[in-house]
Amino acid sequence: MPDKELRIVIADPNPLRASILRDGLREAGHVHVTVIDTFLDLETRLCALNPDMVLIDLENPSRDVLEQMIRISGADARPVAMFADASDAAMINAAIDAGVSAYVVDGLKKERVRTIVDVSVSRFNAFARLREELQAAKDQLADRKAIDQAKALVIKAKKISEEQAYSMMRKVAMNEGKKIADVARAILTAAELLR
């Protein structure tokens, strides 16, 4: 059963990822979730919030600030790596893979920590997939634009129809084992050179 009183801080400069994780934690019943997205004077901000657990993205240089804090606050908080017995190795590997790390106040039940780390890992992975899909869509759009521009050049230079131009480009792509978008970009580069 999730503890509704647990105070969790998400330290992440990426607003989309932070909100995906916050939603995940809320679904798991955690209502006291605060997002920190700027990192000047992180120590003072965190001290004021007095969280039970801090989730921070692995690429954040401010992880080192937390490393110091957990040691000057009288060893009452520890990095989650602390829980690394054999059964936790898989969890920590998954967390590093997903790019998230957790700092936990000492005395928090291990199962509770594990649940929150699991939620964080799955939400971070969901965000990564989302970003990949977004990138794929962007790439596709850029490809389409390059193909259209190259096609227009071929139509003009060879005085052929749009359909003929496209099938010419496709044939070259097939013969050279390239993507049609790469052929289109080569045409655009060549046209730029010969202008």
């Binding site: 692995l58 690429e59 954040n60 240089p61 401010s62 992880r63 080192d64 937390l66 490393e67 990095p79 790596a81 920590i92 590093i96 790390s101």
Partner: peptide, 11 residues
């Protein structure tokens, strides 16, 4: 990006 990352990823 951090010493903590280097330590953890090495471990």
């Amino acid at each position: 990006t951090s010493w903590a990352n280097l330590r953890d990823k090495l471990a």
